[in-house]
Computed example of a mutant assay.
Amino acid sequence: MLEIENLRAGYAKTTVVDDVTITFEAGTVTALLGRNGVGKTTLLRAMFGLCDRQSGRMSIDGVELPAGRAEVPARHGMTLLPDDRGVFATLTIEENLRLATRRGYHPPVDVKELFPLLVERAEQPAGQLSGGQKQQVGIARAILAGQRFIAIDELSQGLQPSLAQATLEALRVVASTGVGVLFVEQSPRYPLAYADRIIGMVKGRLVLDRSADELRTDPAAVTELLVVS
Results as ranks from 00 to 15, higher is better:
Arg197Met: 12
Val63Ser: 12
Ala193Gln: 15
Asn96Glu: 11
Gly86Lys: 08
Leu192Gly: 07
Arg121Phe: 02
Leu129Lys: 05
Ala170Thr: 02
Gly132Ala: 10
Gly104Met: 11
Gln165Val: 14
Gln157Met: 10
Leu117Cys: 04
Ala89Ser: 14
Phe88Ile: 08
Gln186Met: 13
Gly132Ser: 07
Ala175Ser: 13
Asp83Cys: 03
Asp110Pro: 07
Leu117Thr: 00
Pro125Asn: 11
Gly56Thr: 06
Leu129Glu: 04
Phe88Glu: 05
Ala67Cys: 06
Pro191Met: 11
Pro188Trp: 14
Leu171Asp: 11
Phe183Asn: 00
Arg57Tyr: 01
Arg102Met: 12
Asp110Met: 03
Gly86Leu: 10
Gln165Leu: 10
Ser176Tyr: 04
Arg85Pro: 04
Val184Asn: 05
Ala89Cys: 05
Gly127Glu: 10
Gln186Cys: 13
Ser130Gln: 08
Phe183Thr: 03
His106Asn: 12
Ile150Cys: 07
Thr90Asp: 14
Thr90Tyr: 14
Arg57Phe: 00
Ser55Tyr: 08
Glu120Pro: 02
Gln128Met: 13
Leu118Met: 07
Pro73Phe: 07
Val111Asp: 06
Ser156Thr: 12
Gly138Lys: 05
Arg197Asp: 08
Gly68Ser: 12
Pro116Met: 05
His76Ile: 02
Lys112Arg: 15
Ser187His: 14
Leu144Phe: 09
